[in-house]
């Protein structure tokens, strides 16, 4: 096994802790579609360290251009519109990191992901985190935290949810949770996101899902 030469992006260096959680769930040598891949940091990491057959989809053209210029297979596309084009079972993993809350129809996107992929990996900011709850409770304003950095009027996050909301949706759609991890605000300590405390203490959550 060889580690390919560095091609820009983020090869060889550390990636964001939530992306690391996602990457750890991916089996080496698998087929991966990363939706909302940005400039391709995660894809580049997966290519280099997991030798995946990786593809990306990104809404912003600036992100797409940067990713393709780094030698990654990335197209411009919209998770809400373009997932229907892909055939069923085309990928081992379909990844959606920190993007679910920005989609127009998260339920459809989730269903499409598990149609296209044998497994889906989803990470999102937890709106049930104690800081969010406290912020709304004390200040009576839309919460802004380290993960939720936008003002209410210009946020792309139009479908925020809590960990419990998300697990409820999965149950309703007949989606099995294989693994669930939540990260606290320092991104260090991890809780089983299925546990009772996770919805209070987890600032972000990462779920590995498969069809029932």
């Amino acid at each position: 096994m060889t580690v390919p030469a560095r091609r820009g992006g983020n090869s060889g260096s550390a990636i964001r802790v939530d992306l690391q959680m996602v990457a750890d769930m991916v089996e080496p040598g698998s087929r991966v579609l990363d939706i909302g891949c940005g400039e391709g940091v995660l894809l580049d990491y997966l290519n280099s360290f997991k030798q995946v057959d990786g593809r990306g989809m990104e809404l912003s053209m600036a992100g797409v251009r940067a990713a393709v210029a780094h030698g990654l297979s990335v197209i411009q596309g919209d998770a809400d519109i373009d997932l229907k084009d892909y055939p069923s079972g085309a990928f081992d993993y379909v990844i959606l990191s920190q993007t679910l809350q920005a989609t127009r129809n998260p339920r459809d996107v989730l269903e499409q992901m598990l149609r296209i992929g044998r497994r889906a990996i989803v990470s999102f900011p937890n709106f049930g985190h104690w800081q969010v709850r406290l912020s709304l409770f004390w200040h009576g304003r839309m919460p802004m935290t380290e993960t939720l950095t936008y003002d209410w009027y210009d946020t792309p996050n139009i479908h925020l949810c809590t960990i419990r909301d998300f697990t409820d949706l999965c149950a309703g759609l007949g989606i099995a949770v294989e693994r669930a991890i939540s990260l606290n605000s320092r991104g260090r300590a991890r809780y089983d996101a299925g546990g009772r405390l996770a919805n209070w203490l987890g600032e972000q959550a990462v779920f590995l899902l498969r069809r029932e």
């Binding site: 057959d53 593809r55 053209m61 797409v64 251009r65 393709v68 990654l72 297979s73 990335v74 197209i75 411009q76 596309g77 373009d82 084009d85 892909y86 055939p87 085309a90 990928f91």
Partner: peptide, 11 residues
């Protein structure tokens, strides 16, 4: 995409 081909696309 419909045949899961390896494709990059830049406008």
């Amino acid at each position: 995409n419909a045949v899961a081909a390896n494709v990059s696309f830049v406008e």
